[in-house]
């Protein structure tokens, strides 16, 4: 029997397959697209190509599209899944998970290997991956380029708008004024880091162990900036974008 975890996020869908010994035997990330049900169908076909047939696996779906996976055995929220997945990835039981997702940024407190408390950004997109994506596009940069360019900033400026649309016009007027791209990139990253810091402050005691999951797990500058702001070494893992899917696959192992 195999165990499939599907994390259908607002931007990307992540798929994990585990074997009986909870070892990851397959992983894949793809854009979610506009039709969750079609994406789910293409995952099923992809798994079949890998020789993993529907009757040979249990499946848990998570993420905002969790109920749109027609063949899942169970849907579990991304909070529980990210918590479980992060414990697996980092081999720790007491820590705080920051997940910067496409439309939600989550802070999850883990105690004794279980979710103890969490919060999510309220409604608006400030502090999320979507915010970063839109700002990068406005600057004509890729996500990673934006992060790396921030290092070169000499004049530290601030973007004060929390709303993505207003922040975009703020960036546009900075561009119009001839502000260095690196300085704007720096301000964009700082804005995310500050927002996450505010969210974390309500949950985690200072200097607790912090781990980053989600799509920014391989953005070294973000991790550095966050470590500096939180005054603790934030760690991530290249597989941390799969944390939700890993958690989902682990939950699938418990399905009878």
């Amino acid at each position: 029997m195999n165990y499939v975890g599907i994390d259908m996020g607002s931007t990307c869908t992540k798929v994990i397959v585990m074997d009986e010994s909870q070892k990851i035997i397959f992983h894949k990330v793809m854009p979610t697209g506009w039709n969750c049900i079609e994406t789910a169908q293409s995952i099923l076909e992809m798994l079949e190509e890998q020789g993993i047939k529907r009757e040979q696996f249990k499946c848990v779906a998570t993420g905002y599209g969790r109920i749109s996976v027609p063949y899942m055995d169970k849907a579990i929220t991304e909070i529980s899944c990210h918590g479980k997945g992060a414990c697996y990835l980092f081999g720790e039981k007491d820590f705080t998970v920051i997940d910067i997702g496409g439309q939600d940024t989550k802070v999850i407190e883990i105690a004794g290997g279980a979710v103890k408390n969490f919060n999510m950004n309220d409604k608006c997109s400030a502090g999320t991956g979507k915010f970063l994506e839109i700002m990068a596009a406005t600057l004509g940069l890729g996500l990673n380029d934006l992060c790396e360019l921030s290092r070169e900033s000499k004049n530290h400026i601030v973007i004060s708008s929390m709303c993505t649309v207003f922040a975009e016009s703020e960036v546009v007027s900075l561009i119009g004024r001839g502000t260095e791209k690196a300085d704007i990139a720096y301000a964009v990253v700082e804005s995310i880091v500050n927002k996450v810091h505010g969210q974390l402050g309500k949950i985690a005691p200072k200097n607790s162990v912090v781990r980053l999951t989600g799509g920014l797990c391989e953005a070294p500058y973000i991790i550095e900036a966050m470590s500096k702001k939180l005054d603790t070494e934030v760690k991530s893992d290249p597989m941390a974008r799969y944390a939700g899917a890993i958690g989902a696959a682990l939950y699938a192992t418990a399905i009878k």
Binding site: Y64, I76, T77, E78, I79, S80, A114, V115, K116
Partner: peptide, 14 residues
Amino acid sequence: EGQVRTRIEAFIEM
């Protein structure tokens, strides 16, 4: 609706 449901659902799972 979707975001509120996710928060409540995660809380109840916890």
